[in-house]
């Protein structure tokens, strides 16, 4: 499993560790919030072990506390996690030569952080199955150990006040976006996606800005680039 070309399982775990450091911070917060929302330590851990999707788990906590119906929670998870459909498009292309079974197994590990790391982050030059598994394993262990630590140790604290924690997550994605930018095409994507996501976020709300932006900007810009290339050729 340890690739000699520096793209093995262990290398994936090591390269991903700066991101894992940030994941651990909000995993601890999640564990603490879960316990203060009425879940036991075991239930908090079970949720992170199975669902393994940060945003929807955070949103679920007040819904569970308020006794929302099971189907509304499942529907919420579907809508909030719809963005993974887009992630799958890229992960599927990166590993297009792998067997269906491998792809189905890899799918469980697609989260915001591993996706960003392997498509625009430091992992994009080393993408291989063991390397991606290494990043996923590192993310999964961190998310679950962090949940356990937060639930067990800080459960009795009221952690709803830690506002600045939101920034840690934004920071790691901003750094991955920034370090992947190469030419003026990328800056154009950044500006268009930033503008459109703000418009959709402030009008439609929810998580729809991710899906609308993730589809509209690539399609519109690709049409424009194609038209540009054809004009040059004539």
């Amino acid at each position: 499993m340890t690739g000699k070309n520096g793209s093995g399982l262990w290398q994936g775990m090591v390269d991903f560790s700066p991101v894992a450091l940030v994941i651990s911070s909000y995993a601890i917060i999640f564990g603490a919030l879960a316990v203060s929302s009425g879940l036991s330590v075991a239930e908090s851990c079970l949720m992170s072990l199975t669902v393994f999707a940060g945003a929807s788990q955070f949103i679920a906590l007040p819904m569970i506390r308020d006794g929302s119906a099971t189907w509304t929670l499942i529907l919420m998870a579907l809508v909030v996690n719809m963005r993974h459909l887009l992630y799958g498009l890229n992960i599927g292309r990166i590993f297009k030569d792998e067997s269906k079974g491998t792809l189905m197994a890899l799918s469980f590990g697609i989260v915001d952080e591993t996706y960003a790391f392997i498509t625009v982050g430091p992992g994009r030059k080393k993408a291989s199955v063991p390397y991606f598994l290494g990043t996923v394993l590192c993310a999964y262990l961190t998310w679950n150990l962090g949940t356990l630590a937060g639930a067990a140790v800080f459960g009795w604290l009221n952690t709803g006040q830690i506002k600045g924690m939101d920034f840690a997550m934004l920071a790691v994605f901003a750094a991955m976006v920034g370090s992947s930018i190469k030419g003026k095409d990328d800056w154009l994507v950044l500006i268009c996606a930033g503008t459109l996501s703000m418009i959709v976020h402030s009008t439609v709300g929810g998580y729809w800005h991710l899906i609308v932006t993730g589809i509209a900007v690539p399609v519109a810009l690709s049409i424009m680039w194609k038209a540009g290339r054809e004009t040059v050729q004539q």
Binding site: A116, F173, L190, A193, P218, L221
Partner: peptide
């Protein structure tokens, strides 16, 4: 183009 667009959003 999807990764950069989605992550910016």
């Amino acid at each position: 183009t999807i990764p950069l667009a989605t992550l910016t959003a």
